[in-house]
Structures are given as structure tokens and as C-alpha cells.
Computed example of a mutant assay.
Amino acid sequence: MIVDSHCHLDFPDFDGEREALIDRARAAGVELMVTICTRIRKFDQIRALAEQFDNVYCSVGTHPNNADEERGIPKDEILKLTEHPKVVAIGEAGLDYFYDYASPEAQAEGLRTHIAVARETGLPLVIHSRDADADMAAILEEEMEKGAFPAILHCFSSGRDLALKGVELGLYVSFSGILTFKRSEEIRAIAAEIPADRLLVETDAPYLAPQPRRGKRNEPAYTAMTAQVLGETRGVSFDEISRQTTENFFRLFRKVPVAPGFEHVRS
């Protein structure tokens, strides 16, 4: 069993074929997926998808590139939305200095609000961090001192120092199709170093399709390709990396009902 811990099924790239997409995922062994919110003001679309499919769950949050657009949404509004049974995570929120779509101040403000929600609910915060390693590490360390919260560094493509700081602070690290790219030697070296009980896999679909699908639209079924490369990188079998990352998923995403055979992770 494999879990796609981060995809965007609401994006128009999948219009008209979501049922077929989910069937293909199941055929590839991807039994569960979390569709990630990027705009709280469009959460109704995310929630509807999670309600439509029994093996799809969702998050609620504002992507850092939309931080100015949704600046000032209060913590209590986000908390209210987390009451839905299919909302199993917060975010994605974070810092993105690669693009100039939102001010650093609004991004940091939004990140801290999402952290407060994760701390209060116990739901994992899905963290987006791009070209912002130092600031991200500083905020995470400062916020952890105020009180621990569960979190994941999603679609990891940052430096080794941020990965190790995240692990030190109790975070999980998720790898996408970037791991499979020919020039991703540094990312694979980081993936080999992360403790086994902190690893997750994802697609970030429709983006970042793994080799040999690179450049085409990504979809949850391709999580299996990334898991294969992650296993090879760490010197373990496909079955072993699938089991380990799925155990980690159920340990972190505690609101998702545990699948048969994985009950031990919550004992």
C-alpha cells in the first residue's frame, strides 16, 4: 500500500477524469491520497472532492504564493473548517522566495497562523519552503519553543541543513518526483540520510511527474515511481519503502482512519 500524501485534485488539469484518475491510482497500489488546499476561499471545492471519494482526504490552508490575497484570515475561521471529518491536515503554508507572488511579511504571518492551528488541533502542518531555508528554519525553531506541533516539509527540494533541522524539531520530510530527476543527486543524498520513520512520498500532482514521465502531467498513480526510487536510494525493497512510508503517514496523519495491517502504529 502506498499513500500520496500531497496532490491537488481540484486543479482544472484533472477536470472530467477524476474517477478514472483514482481508479488508476488504486491499480498502482496508491490506496489513499490527500488533496491539498491552496486557498481557504476555495475550500468548498476541496471539501467536495474529499466527500465524493472515500479514499481522498484534504487539508485547509493558504499557499504562501496566495498569502497577500488571503492575508488576515483569522485562526478561528481555519479552526472551524478543521471540524469536518475529512480535513486531516493544515496548509499548505510556508515561505516561497523563488516567486515574487506575495510579500515575505504576509507569508510569514500566514505561516505562523497556520502553525497556531496545527498546534491547537494536532493536525499536521504541510509546509511549503522554496529558496527560504534560513528564514524557515528560524521560524520553525522559534515556534517550536512556544509549543510543539506536527508538521511535514513537503516536496523537499531544499538544502541538507533545513532537512536535518526539521528532523531535529520532530518534522517529517516528503519526497516528490524531483527525487527521480537525473540531476537530483543532492536530494537523493538527503533522502538517504533522513531517518526511516520520518519519510513520506507524494506527487504534488499535477506538477513534477517523476522519470520517465517528466514533463507530462503528474497524477497520484505515479507516487509508486517515486517510492521505487526512494527505496533504491536507501537500499531497501519497494515493498519495504511502501510499508515504511505508509506507517509514517498513519503516524503523522492521525485523523485518517488507519488501514488494516497498520493498527500497530497507533498502539
Rank of each mutant, 00 (worst) to 15 (best):
H154W: 04
E141V: 14
R130M: 09
A89W: 01
D100V: 10
L153F: 05
G91P: 00
Y97V: 03
L95D: 01
R130I: 03
C155Y: 05
A118F: 00
A106Q: 07
S129L: 04
A116D: 11
V88T: 11
I152P: 12
A132I: 00
K146S: 13
H128K: 08
G122K: 08
L111T: 02
A102Y: 01
P150G: 06
T113E: 13
A132H: 04
E141D: 13
L111V: 03
P124F: 09
G91K: 00
G122W: 06
A116C: 11
Y99C: 14
V87A: 08
P85W: 08
A93R: 03
I115T: 06
L153C: 07
S129E: 05
G122H: 07
S129N: 14
K86Y: 06
D131P: 08
I152M: 14
I152S: 14
V88L: 08
Y99F: 13
Y99H: 15
A102T: 05
G91M: 02
R112A: 12
S103G: 11
L95T: 01
L125C: 03
E92A: 11
A108Q: 15
F149H: 08
I127M: 13
A137M: 11
I90H: 04
S157N: 13
E120N: 11
A137E: 02
E92M: 09
S157M: 12
V87T: 12
H128N: 07
F98T: 14
I139Y: 01
P124L: 02
E142G: 11
E92F: 08
A134F: 14
A102H: 05
A102P: 09
D96H: 00
A116R: 09
A93P: 01
D96I: 00
R130S: 12
A151W: 14
E120M: 11
E141Y: 08
Y97M: 02
Y101C: 15
T113D: 11
L125E: 04
L125N: 01
P124S: 06
L153Y: 00
S129A: 15
G110R: 01
P150S: 09
P85L: 06
D131S: 12
R130G: 09
A138P: 10
D133F: 04
T113V: 15
K86I: 11
G94W: 00
A89E: 03
V117C: 10
P124C: 05
S103A: 12
M136H: 08
G110I: 07
Y99I: 14
M136P: 05
E141Q: 14
A137C: 10
R112H: 06
H128V: 04
L140C: 08
E120F: 03
A89S: 12
A151C: 15
E120W: 02
T121G: 09
I139K: 02
M136K: 08
Y101I: 13
V88W: 02
C155K: 00
V117L: 06
H128F: 05
L111P: 02
D131F: 03
Y97N: 07
D100I: 12
A132P: 02
A137Q: 06
H154R: 01
E143V: 00
I139L: 08
P150D: 11
E109T: 15
D96W: 00
F149K: 08
A116Y: 02
L95V: 01
I139G: 03
A89Q: 03
D133C: 10
D135F: 02
V87H: 07
H154T: 00
D135E: 14
